[in-house]
């Protein structure tokens, strides 16, 4: 009996561990959220994309996503970006061009993927964009951050600059400051990061066209245009 006892103990612990893991992963086991947090999430839903579905499935990223273009567009371009990453800054005007060119046939989604150790301001920038999103100005802040990337990238503390952008966009500054450090914003960034990890994103910018990863070297405007057209043709078939 003494010979088998340790194995029985190990098996019992394994069973309890598997049971505990299963219990914690149950979909209904979400930790309770404070009232103000859920209302803030709801306001984010309204401000960033009215009428979009809220999904709770794991690894679907923050919901609703920050998106430009109709939900039923034949082509969806999903970018995982970091506001402090120079190639993301270079991709920004390219995406603006294709957005205009393809209009309602293209839906562009931006996902936060701040490369925290490499880019010291990336997380604060992501928080600022998300906080602006809670006041319905995500894309405006997104554009300002990318356009002025070289300026604030050099700064020791970029927060005053981001607050300046918030003022420039007519945001409630007190609320912006509060939201930037809120759980809601933190969770949105966290969920986008989870989605990135699930999709195997290693760096930024990483772009998916209709869920297919676009190689980095194909992000030049002419190549991207060809790929979007190919997706459009595929969707028409």
């Amino acid at each position: 009996m003494k010979r088998t006892l340790p194995f029985l103990i190990i098996l019992a612990v394994l069973g309890v561990a598997l049971g505990a893991g299963w219990y914690l992963m149950r979909p209904g086991n979400d930790s309770p959220r404070p009232e103000n947090t859920s209302s803030a999430v709801n306001s984010a839903v309204v401000s960033s994309s009215p009428g979009s579905k809220v999904s709770n499935s794991a690894n679907s990223g923050a919901q609703p996503p920050h998106a430009i273009g109709p939900e039923n567009a034949p082509v969806t371009l999903e970018e995982f970006g970091d506001f402090e990453c120079p190639p993301c800054g270079l991709l920004h005007p390219v995406l603006k061009t294709v957005e205009k060119e393809f209009g309602p046939r293209l839906r562009v989604i931006f996902r936060e993927f701040p490369l925290v150790p490499a880019h010291p301001h990336a997380l604060v920038a992501a928080r600022s964009a998300e906080a602006a999103g809670l006041q319905g100005k995500f894309w405006e802040m997104h554009d300002l951050l990318f356009k002025n990337q070289k300026t604030w990238h050099e700064e020791f503390d970029a927060r005053p600059t981001f607050e300046g952008y918030a003022t420039q966009l007519g945001l409630d500054l007190e609320r912006f400051r509060r939201d930037a450090s809120s759980q809601v914003v933190e969770q949105r960034i966290f969920l986008d990061g989870k989605r990135a990890h699930a999709l195997g994103v290693k760096g930024t910018p990483t772009v998916f066209l209709n869920q297919r990863e676009v190689p980095f070297e194909s992000l030049a405007p002419e190549k991207l245009r060809v790929l979007i057209n190919a997706e459009l043709t595929r969707s028409e078939k």
Partner: peptide, 30 residues
């Protein structure tokens, strides 16, 4: 087990004593 469950189910881990759980657990090193 708790951290694995939170990671797989995509929930945000909340820190109650320090404040860097999201930064650490969503970093490349996680």
């Amino acid at each position: 087990i708790y951290l694995t469950a939170e990671h797989i189910s995509g929930r945000s881990v909340k820190c109650t004593i320090v404040s860097g759980c999201s930064e650490v657990l969503s970093s490349h090193y996680a």
